[in-house]
Amino acid sequence: MTPEQIIFYVFAALVIISALLAVVVKSLVRSIFLFFVTLFAVAGLFVLSLGDFVAVTQIIVYVGGVLVLMLFAFMLSSKELLNTLELVKTRYSAVQNIPAIVLSLALFFILVFALVKSNVNQLDWINGGNHLSVSDNTVQIIGINLMTNYLFPFEVASVFLMMALIGAAHLARKDKAE
């Protein structure tokens, strides 16, 4: 095993275990902090596939933004959320645990089957010579592409962020009329 493979498997195990724990654990706070671990491990995987800028963005936006937002959301709601959530089985909960596990495992096997059948490692464009290498300056390539090939999505994203900002501020405001 090369060191690269060892690092990959460590990060992969970290992703899977922390994601599973985040889903299984009852307490919301623990679930959010395990989500944090998963996001860091995913950023590590991005670095391994030579997406260093994406990895840094992942850490800044997800860990710095989304996670803090989630912590705020449940702290601003009441203390009731901090308690273990009531496990009352309502009549309308169509999907209980066992069918959900079966469904998830079935989808996983379908995905793995499709992956094995499609033989992704032998595709032409994967094996072509157009690989990123470790010494490439990805930030420069991304910057040039952002201002040329991807200029339109870039501008649309800025308008979209503006819309989300105004929308979130409008939704979360307090009514003055009352």
Partner: peptide
């Protein structure tokens, strides 16, 4: 990783991160 000229995968990932963050805020 195999698309050096256009960086399609990484650019899509960047835009997806931005949109996911905005949608989480809303």
């Amino acid at each position: 990783k195999s698309d050096k000229n256009y960086m399609g995968g990484q650019m899509t990932a960047l835009f997806t991160i931005v949109i996911a963050a905005a949608s989480v805020a809303v």
